[in-house]
Simulated scan of single mutants.
Amino acid sequence: MTRTIVITGGSRGIGRQLARRFHESGDRVVITGRSARVRETAAELGVTGIECDASEPASVETFAAELDGEVDVLVNMAGGNTDLTAPEPDSLKALAAQWNDNLSANLLSAVLTTAALRSRLRPGAAVINVGSIGAEYAGSSYGAAKAALAAWSAGLSAELGPHGITVNTVAPGYIEDTEFFHGKLTDERRAHLIAATHDKRPGTPDDVAALIEFLASPHARHLTGQTIHLNGGAYTTR
Rank of each mutant, 00 (worst) to 15 (best):
T2F: 08
G9F: 02
Q17A: 12
L18M: 10
L18T: 09
R20Y: 14
E24P: 09
I31A: 00
A36M: 14
T41F: 01
A43F: 02
G49E: 03
I50M: 10
I50Y: 13
C52R: 07
C52T: 09
E56N: 15
P57G: 01
S59W: 04
E70F: 05
N76M: 03
G79E: 00
P89V: 09
A94D: 11
L95F: 08
A97L: 08
Q98R: 14
D101Y: 10
L103A: 13
T113W: 02
T113V: 15
T113R: 11
T113S: 09
T114A: 03
T114I: 01
L117V: 00
R120H: 02
A126Y: 00
V130K: 01
V130A: 06
E136D: 15
E136P: 13
G143V: 06
A144T: 15
A144W: 10
A144H: 13
K146W: 05
A148E: 02
L149N: 02
S153T: 11
A154H: 08
G155I: 08
L156R: 02
L156E: 03
L156T: 02
S157G: 13
G164Y: 01
I165R: 03
V167T: 06
V170N: 01
G173L: 05
T178C: 08
F180Y: 11
F181K: 10
L185M: 12
T186A: 05
E188S: 12
R189Y: 09
R189A: 14
L193T: 06
A195S: 10
R201D: 09
T204Q: 09
T204I: 07
D206S: 14
V208P: 07
A209I: 07
S217F: 07
R221F: 05
G225T: 03
